[in-house]
Design a binder for these strands. Structure first.
Lengths: 263, 263
DNA sequence: CACTAGACTTTGATTGGTCAAAGTTGTTAT
DNA sequence: ATAACAACTTTGACCAATCAAAGTCTAGTG
């Protein structure tokens, strides 16, 4: 029994990602599970929209918690009502568990897909910086588009070309093609105390302006620094990157810089 | 007066290509033209669908002729009715001239967009072969997706990386970013006569199977050859690529191979 | 405990893109 | 001239994704 879902009977071309009819698939999947005819045939290509929701839920639920619907709506850029209805669809598809008025969490299948999207996104970012020479402040938006268009084959070529890297230009970990993502144990810069030395590991804000600032100050991932002063009451921390002028950051900014502390 | 079309009021993210609301744009464009407030502000991003229709119309109308609706429907993989209604939309947008029951032709604006799509497609193909090492038989389908996701900025980086090439791996000309595409004057292999020598310049069939065959026989673009025999009645032509075994092709296949004849 | 503000969901409508099937037209053959 | 056919268009429906606005919870606060 062939379970392929003809997207549009009579159409000649493989419309694939964009055109794929996810909802029709759901039907056949439920059928298959009910009848227990096929083990677990890996999901066909979800729509760009579904991929974006999955990715954002993944990013919002970090730590096993439920992602709040409001945050999700903002993250994917839709109204709350739209998010609700889409999340219900994801739940029907067994990609997410939805607790009305509480939030949403990815299932294992959903997590797998989200990690694939994230892997595509981050490999593309690194590729754009490393191979094509774009600035790290502009690659996030580019990757946002490309992550939905690139095939596994091309992605693995890029991965190989880059030497199977494990972080992107912002220090975000690139999930492996299979298996669990590595967990980094990093400290936010806000928790560093004077005289501590460390290395910038990750910048958790993709806004171009912030990234350009970080770059100008010499605090890109890999940069070594020493903490000069820190004061929660003054809401500020001053760090000196090696061979650079010291920089003073407010707590809000410092929180976005994750750091590996020297032992 | 700012003419930007907010895709979804209140949305934070730039939904850009996929989400862009082309029809709403049309409205504002008509407004602008009517009121003569803005000169001619270059079209905003058409949807993936519109891009595909424009590309296929361009490819079908080669020679100033009208592209037939049936052929267009097959080319974009939709039913004839769908093609009709989409072409009407393109005509309303001044991207195409539509003659009911006769066919469709791109306007200048439509042609400009189609050439951009084609440029993206062909540069991507070459990039995939040259930089990422994919086989020339598989890059067409990959590029079909990527051509709608890549920004001008990334495209021009790729163009530079490849040294501003002017043909893709199949010998198809890469349209320049502005201005008219070059016209090659090539001969189909079917029109070659015995003892003529020439060079394969272009293979006008993107089917993987055919491309693999052509590759195995040593008839990829750039290959030198001599015609051994030719007979329209036998519907066949035999050519010998330099340093290779001779190959006999039927007319249907030979027509797909375009050739530069030695003077 | 009763209210209220904010978070969330529901409802009803819209849009772009599509199909199936019925209707129309232009062309060719008899 | 007319019949038949293929190509095309029209019509009515559908689906995914969305929004606006009205409705409903729920967690606090007084």
């Amino acid at each position: 029994m062939n379970v392929k879902t003809p997207p549009h009977p009579g159409s000649k071309k493989d419309v694939s990602r964009q055109g794929g009819c996810f909802h029709k698939y759901l039907f056949s999947k439920i059928l298959r599970q009910t009848l227990s005819l096929v083990p677990s045939p890996s999901y066909p290509m979800p729509s760009v929209t579904v991929e974006n929701y999955l990715k954002q839920i993944y990013l919002l639920q970090q730590g096993g918690e439920l992602a709040p619907m409001g945050g999700l709506a903002v993250a994917v850029g839709v109204t709350p009502g739209t998010a609700t209805s889409m999340v219900k669809t994801l739940a029907d598809a067994n990609l997410a568990d939805y607790a009305p008025r509480a939030g949403v969490r990815l299932t294992e299948a959903g997590t797998r897909l989200a990690l694939q999207v994230l892997r595509r996104h981050r490999l593309i970012e690194l590729f754009l910086v490393q191979t094509l020479g774009l600035d790290w402040s502009e690659v996030h938006d580019e990757a946002e588009e490309l992550e939905h268009a690139i095939s596994d084959k091309v992605l693995e070529k890029i991965d190989a070309l880059l030497g199977h890297p494990d972080t992107d230009p912002h220090g975000d970990p690139i999930p492996p093609s299979t298996g669990k993502p590595r967990q980094q144990k990093l400290t936010p810069l806000t928790e560093c105390t004077p005289d501590m030395a460390g290395e910038v590991a990750r910048v958790t804000d993709q806004a171009a302006e912030f990234l350009q600032f970080v770059d100008r100050q010499g605090l890109t991932p890999g940069a070594q620094f020493t903490v000069e002063s820190q004061s929660p009451t003054a809401d500020a921390i001053t760090v000196r990157p090696h061979n650079r002028e010291p920089v003073t950051l407010g707590t809000a900014a410092a929180m976005k810089i994750m750091v590996k502390v020297e032992e």
